[in-house]
């Protein structure tokens, strides 16, 4: 496996809550697995999850937890690795920032059509995804350097098509 070193990790659960992931990240085995890939600092957007915000240090890792910010873009940019819930917004934001991305799927959410997107993006090797149960083994196993960059969205072909169909006389 290639050498991996991800000092700053940004974790985001989106606009709702993801109790299981929040509790799980703070356990010793998960922190050990994160340290194993070089983690020294975690910025953790916890949303409405059942843990308290604030700055703590655990297992030698500095963890800064907050509920919400107007924009998580800065935190995303300064991170070496992003761990995200499966929400399309968060996933696409991380990929557009060109960050190695691990998606943790919330199995408690039924009607989980978001899984569809994470699955496809893993098939296209833009990210890896796992569940809370497989988080540690995934962190130990995967090589983020094998991920390929995500091409930028482009709506100009669509807009041109619209312009050819819906016309204005000038």
């Amino acid at each position: 496996m290639a050498q991996q070193y991800y000092k700053k990790i940004f974790i985001t659960v989106g606009t709702t809550r993801f109790d299981l992931l929040c509790e799980y990240i703070l356990t010793e085995p998960v922190l050990a697995a994160l340290k194993n890939i070089g983690c020294k600092e975690i910025t953790f957007q916890i949303g409405n999850s059942n843990v308290d915000p604030g700055v703590i240090e655990k297992e030698g890792v500095k963890i800064n937890m907050y509920r919400f910010k107007d924009s998580i873009q800065e935190d995303m940019k300064s991170a070496d690795l992003v761990i995200s819930h499966a929400g399309a917004g968060s996933c696409l934001e991380a990929l557009e920032a060109n960050k190695p991305l691990l998606v943790v799927v919330n199995e408690d959410l039924m009607d989980n059509h978001q899984l569809e997107l994470a699955e496809q993006l893993q098939i296209d090797s833009h990210l890896y995804y796992c569940t809370c149960d497989t988080l540690i083994s995934t962190l130990n196993m995967v090589d983020f350097t094998l991920l390929t960059p995500f091409t930028k969205a482009n709506s100009s072909i669509f807009v041109n098509y619209l312009d050819s169909i819906l016309r204005v006389e000038n």
Binding site: A88, L92, H113, Q114, E116, E119, Q120, L162, I165, L166
Partner: peptide
């Protein structure tokens, strides 16, 4: 009028 429906990027294999 004309209706333009754009399916979300989340939908990969099934329509909403």
């Amino acid at each position: 009028c004309r209706i333009v429906f754009i399916e979300s990027i989340c939908r990969v294999r099934t329509l909403s």
